[in-house]
Amino acid sequence: MRVLGIETSCDETGVAVYDSKGGLLAHALHSQIEIHAEYGGVVPELASRDHVRKALPLIREVFHQAQISSESIDGVAYTAGPGLVGALLVGSAIGRSLAWAWQVPAVGVHHMEGHLLAPMLEAESPGFPFIAMLVSGGHTQLVKVDGIGRYQLLGESLDDAAGEAFDKTAKLLELPYPGGPELAKLAQDGDPKRYRFPRPMTDRPGLDFSFSGLKTFALNTQQAAKREEGDPLPRQTLADIARAFEDAVVDTLMIKCRRAVRQTGVKTLVMAGGVSANRRLRECIGEMMVKEGGRAYYPRPEFCTDNGAMIAYAGWQRLRAGQSEPLQFSARPRWGMEGLEAV
């Protein structure tokens, strides 16, 4: 079975073709960073319009890369949610319309299920069951995965997601958009001993997260530094604040993952989502899982952020199980994974 995947949940247009025998045949991604940089964040209407402009050209590009035509497509998968409703509607309308025109089945994919299954695209992939830590700009979740569609939510962020906290703190430090990767880059030059930020909600039982307080702590630290050193702050001070913030987020995520592994007895951990590309987080989680007698799995960096490959793969899993959408389509900006049908 050969599946076309379309991802348009936020500010990246991703398209890919996955083949059950040949694996990932081709993929392409268009980022909207330049469009939204002027505003310091994603503008939903601009995101939707750009998806309209880029989706079909990317589909043609992927077909050209894979040296295939629409006649060889056996199904279409598109992101149905969660995400920005206008952006989701673009991908849903295009995906469902193409499937109808080509007379093949279509399926709406849960965006976070796509992230969760992204490590399956690698040569060495995890087996079930595993613990998934999904860390992105919109979500921070710990999920016990017993199979595709068999998900148990163990914990989630009660306020800002980890990626959102990264971006907001970067904006506070006046770093370029998108701020998360810029903050991580700056943190590489920071002194880990100069500042220490709290590790929120690690001194109590449970697997939920809270990162909003770290932003306030970063703001207070920045303001105190300005009173001592003047405004603007030296680059080294900014790097030291960035390092303290990153260390706090990484330690918090690691502590919660270790707690989940010990509570469930599951020794396989999958980490996915945009923040999973963070080098320090990968090192910390990898070392922790070795000490726990287990192993951590990650997608390659290009598949950590939103992409069409993960949607094509997740869609293939559901289409081959006989699941498909009726002729109408819908977007689900809020959509929990626990209600998904098992495969």
Rank of each mutant, 00 (worst) to 15 (best):
L88W: 01
L117W: 06
H64N: 14
A106F: 07
A55Y: 00
P57N: 07
A77T: 11
L117T: 14
F128I: 02
Y78C: 01
P119Q: 10
L116K: 06
V135S: 03
V107A: 07
S70P: 04
I94R: 01
M133P: 05
Y78I: 05
F128S: 00
A93W: 00
W100S: 13
E61D: 14
L89D: 04
S70A: 15
T79C: 13
P82N: 09
A132K: 03
Y78Q: 01
S70F: 15
T79Y: 02
M120I: 03
F128T: 00
S72V: 15
P57C: 05
P119A: 09
S97N: 12
A101G: 15
A87I: 08
G95T: 13
H64E: 15
L134Y: 04
G95F: 11
V104A: 10
A66P: 12
I131W: 01
S97Y: 05
A132W: 01
A87K: 02
E122K: 01
L134V: 15
E122F: 07
I68K: 13
H115S: 11
S72N: 12
R60Y: 05
E61F: 04
G81T: 10
A80G: 00
E71R: 15
L116C: 05
A93C: 13
H115F: 13
I68C: 11
A80M: 07
V109H: 09
F130S: 01
A55S: 14
E113R: 06
S97P: 04
A55P: 00
W100D: 14
L134S: 02
G91A: 06
E61R: 13
K54L: 06
I59F: 01
L116F: 06
P57I: 09
P82E: 02
I73G: 03
A132G: 04
S72F: 12
A55M: 15
S70W: 13
L56Q: 00
H110F: 04
G81C: 08
G81E: 00
H110W: 05
A132N: 05
G127V: 12
V109M: 09
S70N: 03
P126C: 08
A80Y: 02
G86I: 07
V85C: 10
V62C: 08
L121A: 05
A101Q: 14
A106Q: 12
Q103I: 04
A118N: 09
M120D: 11
G86R: 06
S70M: 13
R60A: 08
L98E: 00
P126Q: 06
Q103S: 15
P82H: 08
H64D: 15
P82M: 03
P105F: 10
V107T: 14
A66T: 13
A101T: 15
A87V: 09
V135A: 08
P126T: 09
S92T: 11
E113I: 11
T79S: 13
E61P: 01
A80K: 14
L121R: 08
G95E: 08
I59T: 10
P129M: 07
Q103W: 01
A66H: 12
G95R: 13
K54D: 02
V104I: 14
R96N: 13
S72R: 14
F63N: 01
G127R: 15
S69W: 02
A77S: 14
F128R: 03
E122V: 05
P105D: 07
V85N: 11
